[in-house]
């Protein structure tokens, strides 16, 4: 059985043999007629593969010239590039052969004459009953055919547009994720925590208390804090959260204003701990780490008096930083 199978394989490999080996197979089959059907199958493969490579065989250039002229050098989809190269090879060889070159010229003239005397689009529409319309070639790459045709048809224009939109959005999201990762990873965790966030600009919404002593003063203090925070906010140069940087002049002015406002509060205990946290960040961003630590300690100290949820969060943040 194994021997039979080996012989069969040996014969079927006919297409891969050189002339001498092919003759050996032919002789064997002549002597063992029972292998003739297998040999016929092997020969059909050999003939098929020989025909398939004819296009690149210079001996067949003349025979292939009409095809090469009609196949054209215009649109070639990506998946037909090997064929395009083979046709171009025929044309290049023809240019070096005077008689083939002349023949090609005549074939081109005939093609032009036939095409100029016929209206191909009108004829297509008459014969098929279809109106010619754009298909949207780009959607019909290999993946497109699998996804669209095999699932039941060509996508409508709306669907094609929606797919383009989704693809574009996915691409943008991918680029953003990569940039965000690069932006995040270039800094140490401490540096990342030091960046001004929305919370640094909104803590005044909780109000600034003078423990009921002077509502008008409270209003003035609130305005000053907000002014300092707006200045700090306007110093940020980050675009959609990527690679945040700051305008140092504005940052300095914001720090000065915040320091002055804190200093103007009658009692240190009345200063919101968030003000010290923001101040600490401003110090840090301006490169003054010692003062930043002092401000953070003050924020922690103040926080120990507070049971406010926001302040509790700050305390957790501080503990993490230290």
């Amino acid at each position: 059985m194994d021997e039979q199978s080996n012989i069969e394989e040996w014969i079927l490999d006919y297409c891969a043999y050189d002339e001498l080996e092919k003759q050996q197979v032919e002789k064997f089959v002549e002597e063992h007629e029972q292998w003739e059907p297998v040999f016929q199958s092997a020969r059909s493969w050999d003939a098929l593969l020989a025909s398939a490579r004819n296009l690149v065989d210079p001996d067949y250039d003349e025979a292939h010239l009409p095809y090469a002229v009609v196949a054209g050098l215009g649109f070639w989809p990506r998946r037909a590039r090997t064929l395009q190269q083979a046709v171009e090879r025929v044309h290049r060889r023809v240019e070096k052969n005077e008689s083939l070159f002349e023949l090609r010229t005549r074939l081109k003239q005939r093609k032009n004459t036939l095409e100029s005397e016929s209206f191909v689009v009108e004829h297509f529409e008459k014969v098929t009953g279809h109106q010619i319309r754009a298909i949207g070639r780009r959607e019909w790459d290999r993946r497109g055919v699998s996804n669209q045709v095999l699932s039941g048809g060509v996508a409508s224009t709306g669907l094609v547009f929606a797919r383009k939109l989704v693809r574009g959005f996915t691409l943008l999201a991918g680029v953003y994720v990569v940039l965000f990762a690069a932006s995040t990873l270039r800094e140490s965790p401490l540096e990342r925590m030091a960046h001004l966030t929305t919370e640094d600009f909104t803590w005044t919404q909780l109000g600034v208390s003078t423990r009921g002593a002077d509502p008008a003063w409270e209003r003035i203090m609130l305005n000053r804090y907000e002014e300092a925070l707006q200045l700090a906010q306007s110093s940020s140069l980050s675009f959609i959260g990527l690679f945040p940087t700051y305008r140092m002049d504005k940052l300095r002015r914001a720090r000065t204003l915040l320091q002055r406002t804190i200093g103007n509060q009658a009692k240190r205990e009345l200063v919101p701990s968030a003000a010290y946290l923001t101040l600490a960040k401003l110090h840090f961003l301006l490169g003054d780490r010692l003062r930043s630590i002092d401000a953070l300690r003050e924020a922690l100290r103040l926080n120990s008096y507070s049971s406010d949820r926001y302040d509790m969060d700050l305390a957790e943040q501080f503990n993490e930083m230290f």
Partner: peptide
């Protein structure tokens, strides 16, 4: 735009020989 067979065939999303 579609004056020749080449141009008409180029409306296909794959090559004529594919």
């Amino acid at each position: 735009e579609l004056q020749s067979l080449d141009a008409l065939a180029s409306q296909l999303p794959f090559h004529l020989d594919d």
